[in-house]
Amino acid sequence: MLKNWTAERWIATGSLVFSVAYGIAGWNLPRFTMAAVVDAHVFPIFVACCQFALSLWLWVISGSEEPQQSPYAHLQLRPGLFLLLMAAVFIEILEPAGFIIATFLFLAVGPYILGWRKWIISIPLAVVLAVGIFLLFNNYLMVPLPEGIFSL
């Protein structure tokens, strides 16, 4: 049975579960201790009901036929995953290591992941952008970007 479910039906099921969890969490919100005509839990519960009804609708119309060949089977997930990983590294090191290092790393490695091999272009570009944007923001626009190790 389950094997025959289409992606849509799986999504509808997930959405049903979510709407119930969301609604229960909404019901459990603390009540206001002073006068409130409409308290904080009312709107979330209303939304949860809408979500539940809509998911049910999708569940009913989504068939459970034989899953067909996905039109997205030809996607190559690897470069995208690597780029996401690099983005995560960027976010993690942005404050401790500073904007310049994080940006340089991302702009130097990012294009390589996507198949760019001309280091002669990407490395200088990464340096110029990282340092240039940093100086522009911190010195001229007075918008502080993290300095990281350059402040030590």
């Binding site: 990983l85 993690e92 090191i93 290591a97």
Partner: peptide, 25 residues
Amino acid sequence: MRLKKYGLIALLLVVTMVLAAGCGG
């Protein structure tokens, strides 16, 4: 593979920074 190396370098950097910041304090 190359990517992993960069990730490691970045991680090392982070650790160094955190330690350095801690000492500074």
